[in-house]
Amino acid sequence: MDWHRFETTIARQQLAGDESMPSDVFEILSTEDARYAVYALAHDPNRTLSQLADFVAGFTAMRSGTIATPADHENVRIRLHHAVLPKLDATGYVTYDRSNQTIEAAPRQETVNAALGLRG
């Protein structure tokens, strides 16, 4: 699925009050970092924090027409580690091992991906 269609699907489901998407997931998807992370994890759920931060920082830079810097990567890594991944873990979308900084698919990921129109 392409990014534009992913964002359109999220917006359409939010406006329609889609019951198939739990409200806790919509809340998490309100941030750009979280949307980029979910998009990346839907295609490759087993990553390290650093790999995910690379994707999110790079995708952010690409969409804004800039180049990601090491500082951008570090800022994204911190936001993912302290905010996004713990929330995705709490909803059952991923399992985030904070000490090893590894991410794995969790039982709810397939259901959420299907509701968002994402396929791995």
Rank of each mutant, 00 (worst) to 15 (best):
G117A: 11
T111I: 13
E104K: 10
S64N: 12
A34R: 04
P22M: 06
R119F: 06
D33G: 01
T60C: 00
F59W: 01
N113Q: 10
E74W: 01
L80M: 09
L118C: 09
D24A: 14
T102H: 05
Y39Q: 08
S64C: 00
Y36D: 10
T91F: 07
E74A: 11
A90H: 13
Y96V: 08
A53E: 04
I28S: 05
Y36G: 00
E74D: 13
A40R: 15
E32Y: 03
A40P: 00
Q13T: 11
N46P: 02
A106L: 04
E104M: 10
I10F: 05
A68C: 08
I78T: 13
L52D: 03
G58Y: 00
I67N: 08
A71W: 00
M1A: 06
E104C: 05
L29I: 07
I67E: 13
A114F: 10
A114Q: 14
Y36S: 00
F59H: 08
D44M: 09
E19K: 15
F59Q: 12
T66Q: 14
F55H: 08
K87Y: 05
P22Q: 11
R108W: 04
R35C: 02
A57W: 01
D18R: 14
I28H: 09
V25A: 15
E110D: 13
A57D: 02
S20W: 07
A53L: 07
R108Q: 13
R77H: 12
T8Y: 08
S99N: 08
M1W: 07
S23G: 08
D24C: 11
A68V: 02
H81L: 03
T48D: 10
S99I: 00
I67S: 11
D33T: 11
N100R: 14
H43P: 05
G92E: 02
P70G: 09
A114S: 15
T111C: 04
P86F: 09
T91P: 07
A34Q: 04
V112L: 09
T66H: 09
V76K: 04
G17M: 12
R108S: 09
H82G: 04
I10E: 04
E104V: 12
H43S: 12
V112N: 07
E110Q: 14
A34W: 08
Q109P: 03
L80Y: 05
H4Q: 13
I103A: 03
N113P: 08
T91C: 12
T95G: 04
T102P: 02
T31I: 01
R12A: 15
R79W: 06
V56I: 05
P107N: 14
I28C: 06
K87D: 12
R77A: 11
Q109K: 14
V25K: 02
L88W: 09
H81W: 10
V56N: 02
P22W: 01
R12Y: 10
R119W: 08
P107H: 12
G58W: 00
L52E: 04
A40I: 03
V94F: 03
T48E: 10
L88A: 03
E32R: 06
I67Y: 09
G17C: 11
T95R: 14
R63G: 02
E104S: 14
L88M: 11
F55N: 01
M1R: 06
R119G: 12
I78G: 02
A90N: 15
A71R: 03
M1T: 07
L15T: 11
